[in-house]
Structure formats: C-alpha cells, structure tokens
Design a binder for these strands. Structure first.
Length: 263
DNA sequence: CCGACGGTATAGGCCCAACA
DNA sequence: TGTTGGGCCTATACCGTCGG
C-alpha cells in the first residue's frame, strides 16, 4: 500500500481522518518485540509518520503568512490568551469543586472531610483538580507553535503515551513526546510503562514544562528536557510561559478567596 | 428500547520513604 | 544522591443494570 499523504486528509473531518489513518494502519506489520497493548499505537504512528514533516511545514508556512507566533509579541499574546481562558474556565468550576461542609460531614470521601478540616478539604480538592487540568494546558500551549503536531487535535487519533509530536526548529525528524508538568511527575511505578511507550518510536522525548524538582525518569535511549530546554525546541520562550502561568495561578487563587468570602 | 446511574478500571497529578 | 516503589485523590471511559 502507498504511504498516506497529506492531501488524502486535507478535506476530511477529524473523525474521517482517524478512520482513514486506521484503515492504513491495519495493514502495517508490527515487529514481534512490540507488546500486544502497543501494537495499534505502533501501527498508527507508522501510518502518519510519512506525512508529519509535510504537515508541519504547512503549519510553518501558514504561520509565516500572517502574524507569526514566533514573533515575541504575538507569542506573548497567544500564551496569555490561552492562560486567561483556562483561568476563566477553572474559576467557573470552583463552586462545583468545593463540597459544602454539611455534604462533607454526611458522606466524607477523604480524611480531611472526615475530620471537618474545611480549609484542607477545599485546598486539596482545588489543587488536585487544578494540577490535573493543567496537564492539558501544557499541550495547548505547545500547540501554539507551528512546530508541534497533536495526534488528537490534528488527526483525531490517540497514540498511547504520546502527548505531542514536535519538530525541533530546523530539524526534520518527528519527535514523539510525552509532556508532563515537572520532571518529578512520573512515579517510579509508572516509569517502565513510559519507557515502553516512548521506545517504540525512532525519535522520542520525555519532557516537562517546568524544571521543578528532580527527574524520576531515566533511560539510556530516551532524552529528557524540561523548562526552557523544552520550549526552545519548538520556538517558544519559556519566560513568557512562566509569566503567564504566574498570573493565571494567582488569579485563580484570588478567585477562590473571593468565592470563599462570598459564601 | 434507551438514557440515567453507579461501579470498575485506568490514567494523570503530586509527594514521600526506602534503598543502592 | 539518584532511583524505585508505594500511596492518595481526581477525572474519564467503559460497561452492566435499572427504571421510564
């Protein structure tokens, strides 16, 4: 079968793109060392590989033609806008995150609720939800760059263990990337899984949006990058990300305090 | 028959303790 | 000191059941 081409996908909806990719993927032979749970993933990755570079080049060309986000000012605005939208959405969800003291007392779901520690109950619920949702935000911010491809947002397919595919500025190899919040995010018990998921791709990267804490992931073959080292690969300035995140989190905290006082 | 609901499995987030 | 294993909470997908 011929390789899948970018023109084959161009006019299709996300769902149709996924269906076409999977129809190609099915006929791809999987090397015996790939474990069963990753076989489909391997086939999908192999199916889209031939068109990734062209797809990325088109994004870069399109970006150049209008206000390029690689320009510092445009980039700053794009990042701030995404963070602001995220904050808005999260702030709106705060009332639903905090259970009333009465509810918590009647049917406690964790130790803080059992003890009636309202401050801990609320801060725990909010910070956990926030950190979970921010995981998505890093992908959204990375997608600002034309050097980034999202299997889900661009093709409608899920590639296990891969959040984004990047091309380093000026390079032509697609790098299959797992993006976390911090180097320490991965727990020891999850390490073998990440290792397996990344190892099936010729070029892969274990990345963290911020360089906070120490690495929990090490591999002889899979490189790591955090903070500035990661963002610069896709042409985004780390300081702009950090600035926007500071504002965003402080805004969210202020909104929570206002909510609490208003209750 | 279908949608609501609830339980289960899985993945993602963070932190910490033990160990080499 | 870096690696590894474990624990807890949240969100989501999936699936079987139940009631309208």
């Amino acid at each position: 079968m011929n390789d899948l081409k970018i023109d084959d996908l161009r006019s299709l909806s996300l769902g149709d793109r996924a269906a076409l990719i999977d129809s190609y993927a099915k006929s791809i032979t999987v090397p015996p060392q790939i474990k069963p749970s990753l076989q489909t993933t391997y086939q999908r990755a192999t199916a889209i590989k031939p068109l990734l570079l062209d797809y990325c080049r088109e994004q870069i060309t399109a970006d150049r033609q209008s206000n390029s986000v690689l320009d510092r000012q445009n980039q700053s605005e794009a990042i701030a806008q995404k963070c602001h939208a995220f904050a808005q959405q999260f702030i709106d969800s705060i009332p639903s995150l905090v259970r009333s003291p009465r509810q918590a007392a009647e049917n406690p779901k964790n130790l803080y609720e059992l003890c009636g520690a309202t401050l801990f109950t609320a801060s725990n619920a909010i910070s956990r939800s926030l950190s979970t949702k921010m995981g998505q935000l890093w992908e959204d911010l990375a997608k600002i760059s034309p050097y980034t491809i999202s299997p889900e947002k661009d093709f409608g397919i899920k590639i296990t263990g891969i959040d984004i595919i990047i091309f380093e500025v000026g390079q032509t190899n697609p790098i299959f990337t797992q993006l976390k919040t911090t180097p320490g995010t991965l727990t020891g018990s999850q390490k073998p899984r990440s290792q397996e998921e990344l190892a099936i791709h010729e070029f892969s990267l274990f990345a963290a949006a911020f360089c906070l804490g120490t690495w929990n992931f090490s591999s002889p073959t899979i490189p790591r990058a955090c903070g500035q080292k990661f963002w610069s690969k896709i042409g985004i300035e780390y300081e702009l990300v950090e600035d926007s995140i500071k504002t965003m989190i402080l805004d969210i905290e202020a909104a929570y305090l206002a909510f609490q006082n208003g209750q």
